[in-house]
Design a binder for these strands. Sequence first.
DNA 1: TGTACATCAGTGAACGCGCGTTCACTGATGTAC
DNA 2: TGTACATCAGTGAACGCGCGTTCACTGATGTAC
Lengths: 232, 232
Amino acid sequence: MESATKTARARARAAVLEDIKASARQQMALCGAAALSVRHVARELGMSSSGFYRYFASRDELLTALIIDAYNALGSEVERAEAAVGRSDLFGRWMATARSVRSWAAAHPQEYALVFGSPVPGYAAPQDTVGPAARVPLVLAGILADHWHATHEAAAGSSDDHVLGPKIREGLSPIAGIPEPVITRGVLAWAELFGLVSFELYGHLVGTVADPDAFFTSSCERIAAELGVTPR
Amino acid sequence: MESATKTARARARAAVLEDIKASARQQMALCGAAALSVRHVARELGMSSSGFYRYFASRDELLTALIIDAYNALGSEVERAEAAVGRSDLFGRWMATARSVRSWAAAHPQEYALVFGSPVPGYAAPQDTVGPAARVPLVLAGILADHWHATHEAAAGSSDDHVLGPKIREGLSPIAGIPEPVITRGVLAWAELFGLVSFELYGHLVGTVADPDAFFTSSCERIAAELGVTPR
DNA sequence: TGTACATCAGTGAACGCGCGTTCACTGATGTAC
DNA sequence: TGTACATCAGTGAACGCGCGTTCACTGATGTAC
């Protein structure tokens, strides 16, 4: 009985916490992250503004939670889409990854901007975000690694990195033993994909590209070719 | 005497107008565009907040002026850097363009974000920005066009576009007669360059890339190769 | 050149608003004996 | 099972702040005759 009632309270708490984040997401979708207001969120939930502070210590803590959620939502969407493709179809895996990043961004523009857009003024992202932030890069690293091992003998021994930083070697286990130029090409591909999606989302292609779907597909195919990943 | 005194007043007005924009830029550099405050700008200039409205009808009008200025500042910087390279050195022209975009962004991060970052909530860019916004793409188009004409016979007749939009054909005269795939590859290169610069500026490469300069250079060289533009 | 008038930069007070956060509190829910 | 106590969700009022914009105004600068 003890733990049952205990979890009842805990569950209620968790539910309200989710309500707060859902309301914040909805508000963000309308006005952007910078305009996110604690009082507005509380009002929306029929709660006093002071009640909010039972759940988050500050507005910044809410922002952090939203950022982590956004990284995780994008991450699991991308992982799901990529996992649905046969392991040996490396081109298909890349295209699925790219497409799901774009479609998630289109469906959640403000959450995408929260995470990949210009930083929210006066907010500094804490360390907790790095794990969730690595999920999409991890998927890409997996594709690159599989491609490398499929086309090369397993030549072990870590190359001397001078361009890469520590986090990528420690954080992305799949890429162990893969030469630096291959990895930097992968990082570039990730930046390119991000640039492509952001450019479209922020309206820099309006008037320039009449068929964004076709442009995106052909662009991703070109990037794939440059990664050495071709349709089978 | 008439026109002399007239221009005296007009010059004073123009000077104050520049002061306002300079102060706004400085404030933006500290807190971001979303936090830009009319009262703060006026205070900084020792002017009453209502005095501001002698110069701009609203905060949005100031933002618009700042956006146009930012596009023009970036545009003239890039034009200058690109023009300093010999016309026949297409690789050098591309690298100069890319490098100057990056260095301008590093020197003016908030102005870069104002223009290429997530849109300021509640602000809609008016038509006046499209001219200045096209300056960098125009430089790129010039490089691409020169490269095309250097490597191909002048095969006239416009191809049937289905991916490209109207603005690019009308706005960028240099690319007349160049096949669509070449142009879309150029648009992609522009998006890639933007992605690369933004990724670095917004901190997504921290920990991943130890030597950002080297990574940027090698990345741009790769993009050049994909454009078919090689060092001579 | 002098005078009457119009233009316009700049002021100070005010309007009405929303914000993040704190604090002392009320009551309901859970806990220990 | 019942009672005394602790925990904790939620409230309402308040603090102190800054915001964009308007309005009636003062004086200096420029214009027309």
